[in-house]
Design a protein around this nucleic acid. Structure first.
Lengths: 218, 218
DNA sequence: AATCAATGTTGACGCGAGCAACATTAGATT
DNA sequence: AATCTAATGTTGCTCGCGTCAACATTGATT
């Protein structure tokens, strides 16, 4: 029997886990700071000792999501034999994550367009970049093996990411009208189609884009 | 001088316009039914005579968005000479819409996964389908002209949609780190890459997917 | 033992969603 | 024309949520 202490052993993590679970159940819109506190068995204001605000907690949830996504992709792509196979599995892992935790993905990508105030958002970008690097490394490996032509790997990676992200988002929204298995199969086919086009000729980013660079959006 | 009548001439449209404007300014999260009413110069409860709830109004905003997207795509693709050019312009129009009205796009795609209760969501799907049909028709035209190989046009259209939707969403989120012009240029390149792959061999949907069909998600 | 900073609690304020009851007006019926 | 009715707009509430302020408890440091 766990003793109920005034000072919680590790409230921050408890809150984070509760938040992740709640997001999975009700989505970001119905997500409530007070409900998280309730589930953690603390008062409605306790979370403020660990998170600045509701949005801050959601940011932490997003970071956790990027971590899980990265791990899942790395695990998913493991059984691939050829670089191109591994690249495909990487994308399928991404889509599978999205289907499995659609609300979590939404928190990761569709919350606060982040005007790139380099505060917390920096580590946000950093962790998100980890997931991207998995894909980028797959691209580079495929280039080394000759499965993909040499050239700017960044442009290829962004293109592949776009395709896979689009499939993920549309699948979540029910726009593809496919069940989970069929969606993964569709991802395979789409990826093969894209790689076919990549093999034809190199694709380059417009010269104005050097990454990493300061964003000049809007 | 417009006379202030108790009964508003066309409150529903006034509210819708105000809602669209508010969404554009503050996004779906800060969007408030009461603020819409305020801007329309009406009491906080008047909207309920025209919309069931806040979500219902947002659904109407989404529908309006799909209408605008469809019109913009049709207008954008007009100057294209060859079917493949028109296809590309279609995708670029999609991305341009997304960059221009990111919040509106979010309302259109990232609100309430809609468990397909065939009430309002039916017309939602219908209007969204109109935008999709523009793309689908481009694909079919490209197939007729021989620019794309014969085969299931639906699979090709869904693949192209995924790529373009992914670019749009990632661009909005700042993940591509490109400004508007560079993003459009990137879209062009990505589209060409994909079409190159499509031209290689036909891509098919898995047999379990016949559209239109009842969705079997989850 | 005494103190302090960290951590959790209680209570309050303001705001928005939505419900109910009331007010006003446009049209249809007579 | 006078009246009735349904549609439409308003006022006033309740409830929950985010957040701030003030207070309480506790583990660590001196």
């Amino acid at each position: 029997m766990p003793v109920k202490t005034y000072h919680h052993p590790d409230l921050r993590n408890t809150l984070l886990e509760a938040a992740v679970a709640l997001i999975g159940e009700v989505g970001p819109r119905a997500f409530t700071l007070r409900e998280v506190a309730r589930r953690a068995g603390v008062s409605h204001n306790a979370p403020y000792r660990h998170f600045d605000s509701r949005d801050d907690l959601l940011t932490a949830v997003a970071l956790e999501g990027f971590d899980r996504l990265t791990r899942l992709m790395q695990k998913t792509l493991a059984p691939g034999k050829t670089p191109i196979e591994r690249l495909e599995l990487c994308g399928c892992g991404y889509v599978d994550f999205a289907i499995g935790w659609p609300n979590h993905l939404q928190v990761m990508f569709d919350l606060a367009p982040a005007p790139h105030t380099h505060g917390q958002s920096q580590s946000h970008d950093h962790v998100g970049e980890n997931a991207f690097l998995v894909l980028l490394n797959c691209i580079k490996a495929a280039q080394s093996s000759g499965d993909l032509p040499a050239g700017d790997p960044m442009a290829l990676a962004l293109t592949a990411w776009s395709l896979v992200h689009g499939i993920a988002k549309l699948a979540i929204g029910g726009n593809l009208q496919l069940d989970r298995k069929a969606t993964i199969a569709f991802t395979h086919k789409a990826a093969q189609t894209l790689y076919g086009g990549m093999a034809k000729k190199t694709t380059r980013l417009p010269s104005s884009a050097q990454r990493p660079a300061s964003p000049k959006r809007k």
